[in-house]
């Protein structure tokens, strides 16, 4: 596999953990302009990778904040093509990685190879399929490999040691370690055994391990970045966007407000390598 953008923006696992930030944004929430603006701002702030959530009507992997953002985007008439077009528009002007988080329902409908090819052509560097368990992943992984997309596996606190190894070995780019059992959402404390879990996963995969699910403050980011290669923040950012919209913010004002929060989160992480 050629040197991939995610290999250059994420830390090397030979070093002591000194994590980067991976913000999550719902594509098209509240509109394409704001998503685009936030990606550019986050890129300037030095985030390593943006996780772009592709709206799906019936996501079971996401909590209420992200699910509501999906419904709001879909009600505005947003189509899958709009997500690909958005990615293609920003790709050439941002340095950070871009990973698509998408339900298998959409990938299956479009067709595995066709979906991966389009994602890759639009400028995505990797793909996260939260509802494809490793037992069912050979075809999706093959299609991702062929399209030169990193295949980012997810590990939960409840994942058995045996599965953990299979998932780690099947991943490329990085491994996504979920900090708490449950759906995406904001929690107040980080689990005690997280550092040990991350170390095991780093050793098994030889890949950077990024921790997500339940990270909502700069202090959380700082804590996670001390033990892992990256901190993924989703619901807390999407909630800021939803709150801004509710308070009448739009366009540049909304981008300013939310990117200030991303800057605050960045205070707990170090900038990407290049």
């Amino acid at each position: 596999m050629p040197t991939h953008r995610l290999e250059t923006t994420l830390p090397r696992t030979t070093a002591e953990p000194n994590g980067v930030l991976l913000p999550y944004l719902t594509a098209g929430f509240p509109d394409a302009g704001v998503t685009e603006g936030l990606i550019r701002k986050a890129d300037e702030l030095g985030v390593a990778c943006i996780e772009l959530g592709i709206p799906f009507s019936d996501s079971i992997a996401d909590g209420p904040v992200i699910q509501n953002s999906f419904h709001s985007v879909l009600e505005s008439g947003w189509r899958l093509d709009d997500t690909f077009a958005l990615a293609a528009r920003i790709r050439s002007s941002v340095q950070c990685g871009l990973a698509a988080m998408v339900s298998f329902s959409l990938v299956h409908r479009v067709g595995l190879e066709r979906f991966m090819d389009r994602a890759s052509a639009s400028g995505f560097d990797g793909i996260i399929l939260p509802d494809v368990p490793v037992e069912e992943s050979s075809a999706t992984k093959q299609a991702a490999d062929r399209a030169d997309l990193c295949y980012i596996g997810l590990v939960a606190p409840t994942t058995s040691a045996e599965r953990r190894e299979t998932i780690a070995r099947g991943s490329t780019g990085f491994v996504y370690q979920m900090a708490v059992a449950g759906t995406t959402g904001e929690r107040t404390d980080l689990p005690r055994n997280l550092a040990a879990e991350v170390n095991v996963l780093r050793a098994l995969s030889g890949l950077p391990v990024c921790v997500g699910f339940g990270i909502s403050t700069a202090q959380h980011v700082r804590d996670v970045c001390g033990i892992a290669d990256g901190a993924i923040v989703g619901s807390a950012i999407v909630r800021r966007i939803a709150d801004g919209v509710r308070h009448g913010l739009a366009g540049e004002a909304l981008i300013e407000s939310v990117s200030a929060f991303i800057a605050e989160l960045m205070s707990g992480a170090r900038p990407r390598l290049r």
């Binding site: 939260p130 509802d131 368990p133 058995s160």
Partner: peptide
Amino acid sequence: RGRYGNFGGQYVPETLMA
């Protein structure tokens, strides 16, 4: 594997697999 011909299976998040 919980399949009826081509259908069925377990397409759930890793948090539910256990």
